[in-house]
């Protein structure tokens, strides 16, 4: 069955530039759909091409600008087809924007925050961050929201306005990071020897940085122990594995060399005040025991 060609010439409405037919509307939708399809294909191709060549974060930002930019440009340039003057549209768009802005403040706020996040880049895709009490990896920064995969694998979507106005802690914002832990040794142990042992251990660890240098020192003399504090800098990517490894390794190396981590202890001195015991009790220990047993009755009665 041949479609009725005349149908496409059917005028739907008339503008100052002339009548707008069904064919024009069809053309407009077709061009817009094609442009979306083509920009999506090009974006996919570019993403694959630049995968190993530029950082994912920078690449994604450029691709998003390319994708949405292409669609907006095609949309505006084809408005003529449906009888809308783009300049008039911009004016109308401005007014509409104000109206929409008031009507959808949150969405617009998120959108603008999203643009600022992409420009200012306090966080990047792949970073480990803490935002509004949520910690994890940034998996995507979208126009309206930011996606975070928490360490236990949950997906958290945070509106960009909240991201932008909250305190952001970027755990991988700098190339290196320090960790610190303390370990107690006995008062009788040689702290200098313990420090040398820990220094040797750290020196053997490739990822324990030479600069900034690690530091090991006696920080406190406690009741039960002498506290050693160990501070080590590591590349951010190796920070956590190194810390996990070294805490136990330090305990092991100290114990292997006879330096022990003491239990909490209290020294109690017992004095036998033999001078104060009456002669009669000294000679009759049974009576002493009896006196002790009857202490409560005698004293507390």
């Amino acid at each position: 069955m041949i479609p009725d060609i005349e149908l496409f010439n059917h005028s739907l409405y008339t503008t100052s530039k002339g009548p707008v037919t069904l064919g024009h509307i069809f053309q407009f939708i077709l061009i817009l759909s094609l442009s979306i399809l083509i920009s999506r294909i090009i974006t996919l191709y570019l993403r694959r091409y630049f995968k190993d060549k530029v950082s994912r974060d920078a690449g994604e930002t450029v691709l998003k600008f390319f994708y949405y930019g292409t669609i907006i440009i095609v949309f505006i340039s084809t408005l003529d087809l449906i009888g809308i003057d783009p300049s008039g549209f911009l004016l109308a768009g401005g007014i509409t924007g104000i109206v929409l802005g008031f009507a959808s403040q949150n969405i617009v706020g998120n959108l603008i925050s999203g643009i600022f996040l992409m420009v200012e880049k306090p966080i990047k895709i792949g970073d480990q961050v803490e935002i509004s009490g949520t910690s994890g990896f940034v998996t995507d920064i979208r126009i309206i929201s930011t996606l975070i995969r928490t360490y236990d694998g949950l997906l958290v979507r945070i509106p960009n306005q909240q991201v932008f106005t909250s305190n952001i802690t970027n755990l991988v914002g700098h190339p290196v990071r320090r960790f610190e832990f303390a370990i107690g040794i006995r008062h009788s142990d040689d702290a200098d020897h313990a420090i040398r042992l820990v220094e040797d251990l750290i020196d053997k660890e490739s990822f324990a940085l030479l600069n900034p240098a690690p530091s090991i020192f006696v920080s406190k003399i406690e009741e039960s122990s002498v506290e050693l504090v160990i501070r080590i800098w590591a590349p951010v990517s190796e920070w956590s594995p190194l810390k996990t490894k070294l805490v136990w390794a330090v305990k092991k190396i100290l114990e292997e060399n006879g330096i022990e981590v003491p239990f909490p202890q209290r020294v109690v001195y017992l004095h036998t005040a033999s001078d104060q015991i009456p002669e009669e009790l000294k000679q009759n220990p049974e009576k002493e025991i009896e006196n002790i047993l009857n202490y409560e009755e005698r004293v507390l009665a």
Binding site: H174, P175, N211, W233
Partner: peptide, 17 residues
């Protein structure tokens, strides 16, 4: 095998040393 930081903590570069 040992690593070090060239430059300051903010903005330096991790290097094999």
């Amino acid at each position: 095998q040992k690593f070090t930081l060239y430059g300051p903590v903010s903005g330096g570069i991790v290097c094999k040393r």
